[in-house]
C-alpha cells in the first residue's frame, strides 16, 4: 500500500521534468502535449538565441563567484563558531542562519530598497551579494558538520610536533574537511544558479539570469526553444544532484538542525 502510493508520488515529482524533456523534441511550432515527431532543431535554435547565451553566461559567472565567496565566508564562519564560547556562539549562529528563516519576499524587498539607496542597483554585484547571503548558511551547515566530525587530537598532534597554525590548517584540517568544502561550494553553485525568487527582485533588463529569463517568458505563448532551454537545465541539475549525493549525501544539506 505505502509502496504503491510512494511510486505514484515519485511519478508526480518527476512529471514536470519528464514532460519538459519530452516536449522539447516536438516538431510543432507551438508547445502541446503529446509532442509531435522528433527533432533537435529547438536546441539548435536556442543555442543561436543571443538572449539565452547571455543569460546562461551571466548565471554561470554569478553562480561561480557566489560559490567561491560563500565557501570562503561560510568556512570562516564555521571555524569561528567552533572556537567561540557558547555564549558568543549562539548569537553568531542566529545571525548567520537567519536568512534561511525569513521569507524570501522580505529579503528580496529589503535588498532592492537597500541597493537602490546605495546606488548599486542594476549591478551584478548586487545579485552576487544577495545570493551569498542566502547560500552561506548552507555552507556553514555542511562545513560545521565536517568540522565537528574531526577529532581535535589531530590538530593538537600537529601543533605539538611544532607545526605553526597555518600549517596545521593547510595540512591537517582542510584535507580532512574536503568533503564539506566541496559539497558546500557545489551546493552554493546550484542554489545560486537556480535562484529566481531573489534574482527576480535584483535583476534588471540587461541583467537577466537564466531562471529570470524563463520566469519572464512564462506568461507568454510557450515557445519550443524555451522548453529546450528548460530541459537542458533539468538534465544539468540532475547530473549535479547525483554528484552531490555521491560526494556529501543530500540529506545533510536539508536536515532540520542548524
Amino acid at each position: 500500500m505505502t509502496r504503491a502510493i510512494t511510486y505514484l508520488v515519485l511519478a508526480f515529482i518527476l512529471l514536470p521534468g519528464v514532460v519538459l524533456i519530452l516536449t522539447s523534441f516536438t516538431e510543432a511550432r507551438f508547445v502541446s502535449f503529446p509532442p509531435e515527431g522528433f527533432t533537435f532543431k529547438w536546441y539548435v535554435l536556442a543555442a543561436q538565441k543571443p538572449e539565452f547565451i547571455a543569460s546562461l553566461k551571466l548565471s554561470v559567472i554569478i553562480a561561480s563567484v557566489v560559490a567561491a565567496a560563500s565557501t570562503v565566508l561560510g568556512t570562516a564562519t564555521s571555524f569561528l563558531l567552533r572556537s567561540l564560547s557558547p555564549g558568543l556562539q549562539a548569537p553568531l549562529q542566529a545571525l548567520v542562519m537567519s536568512p534561511l528563516v525569513l521569507p524570501t519576499v522580505v529579503i528580496g524587498i529589503s535588498m532592492i530598497q537597500f541597493f537602490t539607496l546605495i546606488g548599486l542597483v542594476a549591478s551584478p554585484v548586487a545579485v552576487v551579494i544577495g545570493h551569498v547571503i542566502v547560500t552561506t548558511p548552507y555552507v556553514v551547515r555542511l562545513v560545521s558538520d565536517s568540522l565537528s566530525a574531526l577529532p581535535r587530537n589531530l590538530e593538537w598532534a600537529g601543533s605539538s610536533l611544532g607545526a605553526p597554525d597555518w600549517r596545521v590548517l593547510v595540512l591537517v584540517i582542510l584535507p580532512n574537511i574536503k568533503v564539506g568544502l566541496i559539497g558546500g561550494g557545489l551546493f552554493a553553485f546550484i542554489m545560486s544558479f537556480e535562484n529566481v525568487t531573489l534574482s527576480a527582485f535584483l535583476a534588471t533588463p540587461g541583467l537577466t539570469t537564466l531562471p529570470v529569463l524563463i520566469f519572464g517568458y512564462s506568461d507568454q505563448a510557450l515557445e519550443p526553444w524555451l522548453v529546450a532551454v528548460c530541459s537542458v537545465t533539468v538534465l544539468l541539475t540532475t547530473a549535479l544532484v547525483v554528484l552531490l549525493e555521491r560526494t556529501i549525501g543530500l540529506q545533510r544539506v536539508f536536515s532540520a538542525k542548524g
Binding site: 520566469f215 549525493e245 536539508f254
Partner: peptide, 25 residues
Amino acid sequence: ILIIVLSPLLISHAVLNFGWLIVLN
C-alpha cells in the same frame, strides 16, 4: 527515492513552472 524526492529543490521554480504549464495548458 531520496534523490527523486529532493530533486524539485534543486531545479529552478521558473523551470518547474514551465513544466506545469505544459501539463495544465
